[in-house]
Amino acid sequence: MIIRAEHLTKTFRTRRRGDGVMGTLTSLFSRAYDDKLAVRDVSFDLEPGELVGYIGPNGAGKSTTIKMLTGILVPTSGECSVNGIVPWQNRTQNGKQIGVVFGQRTQLYWDLPLKESFELLRAIYGIPADVYERNMAEFTKVLALDEFIRTPVRQLSLGQRMRGDFAAALLHNPPVVFLDEPTIGLDVVAKEAIREFIARTNRERGTTFILTTHDLNDVEKLCDRIIIIDHGQKLYDGRIEAIKRRYGRQRILVAEIDGFCADCEIPIPGVRKLSQAGARVSFEFDRERVSADELIVALAKQYELKDVTISEPELEAIIREIYLKGLGVDAPVAEALT
């Protein structure tokens, strides 16, 4: 177990501020506080080499959790450890073994050329010369850094900066890396490049990743396991496949039928006709009750089929339902798919 969180809880206490001048003045002397429970009683374990998606709607408590694991926030209660080290008690020790990418802010030195930021990091982490050379060579190639390695960071585009940030986070070979929205604001190609880099690092170096993102394609392409939190509480922790199976039972079959059919109904329980546009008819079916095979056979008996496509439920549609309704209701994903 390389990362563990046990009953992790964080409450933010903010001084209550009044409105206007009088409000500001009285708030200077009052002891009124607002408590905000950002993370409540969250527990999970990660094995070395896992790449876990940590997702949840805005304000769910994802960044707060990551800040506790990196040692920059002290938990209000509960415990956590990274590689056996309690981050907030031993921030510097922990700092050596983790890498962090915050999509929202850079860890590169704003005034310095990218290359010099790396040199400085080399001194900060005491990276041995051979490790530094090897990593620089690899990252320069994989992330195509040489186009802008001499450019001051403040002149880099977001995509370039993000590539620089990834190199910076991994330069000291950390066994654990936290990514907080690393693909935010990137174009499709840049996102793909970053995903490829994460997957490659995870595969080749066995680096453990926790990935926070609002782009579920990131998660779908990279992670086997996701943890979903909302309002600070853990809602789900398990395999993506399982959540798809459990909450995405409905699939869609679109058939193109030769010739006219006024009322193409299939009288099988678990199948429902959704729409019809000319020769294209869509059916929604519950894959627990009817297999795609059965449905196609039944259709073929009645009609001349020209083409058939079946669509998987998209993770995004499932997650949206979970955010909106929680885990209780079975997600009617069909709507989202038509």
Partner: peptide
Amino acid sequence: EGSIAIDLMRPIS
């Protein structure tokens, strides 16, 4: 503005 986070996550005083 919160960028102290970056300094705090490094192994430095």
